[in-house]
């Protein structure tokens, strides 16, 4: 079963990416490939990516009648922001939570674990809508 691990990091977590202390910076960047390798060795990795920090985001908001409005910045004005995600294939939620606990994000991060939509169900619905 596929689950998505959504990794929300706070400002301190994002700051580690180009931390002035080289050892901290290196620790941050070397932990992720190790995690990916562990996922791969377990046959659990489906997909995943890191996102550039929130200030690089643009957001499109619907406006009644008018075209979508493009704004700088991420969607939500929260302390923690999406920093990356992994899609994993594991037997159940307990196993997904185990992998979520191993995500090498800094303390202060939040990992949301959500089942993916079953592709078959979504495709069946979509096929029903085809002319």
């Amino acid at each position: 079963m596929n689950y998505t691990l959504l990794i929300y990091e706070n400002a301190a977590g994002f700051a580690l990416r180009d931390h002035p202390d080289e050892s901290k910076r290196r620790a941050y960047w070397s932990a992720w490939p190790a995690y990916v390798q562990a996922l791969r060795a377990a046959g659990a990795l489906v997909d995943g990516a890191g996102l550039e920090p929130p200030h690089t985001a643009v957001t499109l908001r619907p406006r009644d009648g008018a075209p979508q409005q493009v704004q700088d910045g991420p969607f939500a004005d929260t302390k923690e922001q999406l920093g990356g995600y992994f899609i994993i294939d594991v037997p159940d939620l307990d196993a997904a939570l185990e992998w979520a606990a191993r995500v090498p994000a800094a303390p202060g991060s939040v990992i949301e674990v959500r089942p993916n939509l079953k592709p078959a169900a979504a495709e069946a619905a979509a096929a029903g809508a085809q002319p």
């Binding site: 070397s30 932990a31 190790a34 995690y35 390798q37 562990a38 060795a41 191993r102 090498p104 800094a106």
Partner: peptide, 18 residues
């Protein structure tokens, strides 16, 4: 070591292994 770091659940332990 990479494998151990990838399986680690604790930040302080991860740093030690690194």
């Amino acid at each position: 070591y990479a494998r151990a770091i990838g399986l680690c659940e604790d930040a302080a332990m991860r740093e030690l292994l690194q």
